[in-house]
Design a protein around this nucleic acid. Sequence first.
DNA 1: CTGAAAGCGCTAACAC
DNA 2: GTGTTAGCGCTTTCAG
Lengths: 345, 345
Amino acid sequence: MPITIADVAAHAGVSKTTVSRVLNGKGELNAATAARVRQVIEELGYVPSAGAVGLARGRTQIVGMLVPSMTWPWIGEVLQGVVDVVESEGFGLLLFTCNRGEESLRRFAQQVSAKSFDGLLVIEPEGTLDYITELHAAGLPVVLIDDRGHQPLFPSVATTDRAGGASAARHLLELGRRRPLVITGPTSFGCVQERLAGFTEAWSESGTPMAAQQVLHGDFTYEGGRHAIRSALDSQDPAAPPGQGPGSAFDSVFAHNDLSAAGALAELRAHGLRVPEDVAVVGFDDVPLASQTDPALTTVHQPLRGMGAAAARLLLAHFRGDPLPGTPTVLPTSLIVRGSTHPGR
Amino acid sequence: MPITIADVAAHAGVSKTTVSRVLNGKGELNAATAARVRQVIEELGYVPSAGAVGLARGRTQIVGMLVPSMTWPWIGEVLQGVVDVVESEGFGLLLFTCNRGEESLRRFAQQVSAKSFDGLLVIEPEGTLDYITELHAAGLPVVLIDDRGHQPLFPSVATTDRAGGASAARHLLELGRRRPLVITGPTSFGCVQERLAGFTEAWSESGTPMAAQQVLHGDFTYEGGRHAIRSALDSQDPAAPPGQGPGSAFDSVFAHNDLSAAGALAELRAHGLRVPEDVAVVGFDDVPLASQTDPALTTVHQPLRGMGAAAARLLLAHFRGDPLPGTPTVLPTSLIVRGSTHPGR
DNA sequence: CTGAAAGCGCTAACAC
DNA sequence: GTGTTAGCGCTTTCAG
């Protein structure tokens, strides 16, 4: 017994078409009729069936979102950004993950074919770029939220990884540090290459270029961070105590994400090194963890929420007829200074 | 040009009805016809339109999920549990948050009325219990994932907060600790009351009941954890150094969540106290942060993923005709021992 | 075993 | 301005 447009029409003594018109504000209506219809809608508490509207209009008012996993610490931020704008525009958000591999993807593909949503927002799950590109080519509106530094063949929202790396370098230089250690993420990621390039460039501008052994390849994990510090300490001149003293291997660390920076922090302490006095540490991302380490982590903030919101806005604007931009939308990073580089903060 | 059931019917030389039958496995079909139809479906890559099926059947094959916010650290785990089962059953997950207050909720209510989904999973957003109860009463299948220790009037999935508190107490007792400090969460939460009751009961069984000043009211934040430790240290006998020595105020901490436990950890260190030698610390939740503190946090693991999955299974089973259980489904907590109570782990 | 026809609830030409 | 008439793509009686 849910009430339908027909009920409203009957109660108001008009046709379904008229009701539909006041609902969607189309055509010229007699003010009086419109008011009466609105009144009845109110009284009956009528709400159009999303499914029926979707079928009739050929558009669902739903945006799909595909993410690799829900359990990564920064995914929530992006999602909140997305959800905020999607909801406020009266759209629904249909969520998909790739947690169960092949099977997940097949299921997702089904939903695409089933026209369950009008457009797709995606944080690229490993190895699906080709598939997504295909969907885009097939006419599905897609916006990529790029955390990998790809340059995809379709609209995307990204951040300034290179400038972020540079800002970390400049910060350390300003603090008087001269021997940095860089702990990278997986080097196949474009973002990692950018962060490294930005850091290295900015550093060389100081006149002291970096040596190869100052870059350690990590894997974005906590353990990876610990391990990098351990091996850096192991391999340095045993006669020279680490820290700011002359001869020590490094006086600062730039980790490519906060998680490995947190690992570095722990390992440094385990070796009796003080942060930031002996070694200053800078992370990347600004996930919640960053403000909950001890000392709190100076880090390059990624505008995750903003990226999610921007991607959603792009897609929704497209539904209204605006073209999707051919070039990536780039949101700037910003350096957040905390205790790991600045005593007392 | 999306291909429809009519296309398949035409190509296979049968009626739409027949195609529909092979699609849904209803009625007795001639094996040969069925095979032929299946063949055509395959060739054409036909997938039924979700919207059309929904309209015709009156069911959307979508489950709605309402959460307070996406940015809490443990929400992701629950969501992943939900998504895993929802997806594997061929359903879609429509996500809603209450981030924008009243407005969010109104929008959500619309979607409910619009019959956008068949049933609802909810992590109760503050102050919406009445509204949810109403929806349930109105006939919408609802399962609550209860993080607050409510005893709602509708199906829910919860965890053993009381037993979890007790396990923390027993662990500390076994380690020989005798003067615990408890840092609670907001006391209006049922789960906080339960955790406290469980801890206190188990502790009194040891023969040494707890004093009121051993319980500090916190707020589930990092700062709250730091603050609690600070005031505990401030208020103790200035002549008695803290730690395990006689006369010191406490030799262990049970924080009601990991975040405040991490705060406690930091503050203890700031005062020169060693964890776990001087003070052992136990948290609650087992969020990712717990394994990334230094030392890593012993904590009471909440089966968040399992709770999400269980809730989803309950709802889906209900769609198949099973009744929803009248009594809460309870999943057990488990104690995860790490370095904050056990040196070397 | 299979098909014709009538919806599901709404929108969109096209008349009046 | 407003109503009539077809659909949107699928399911489901009801015949045959």
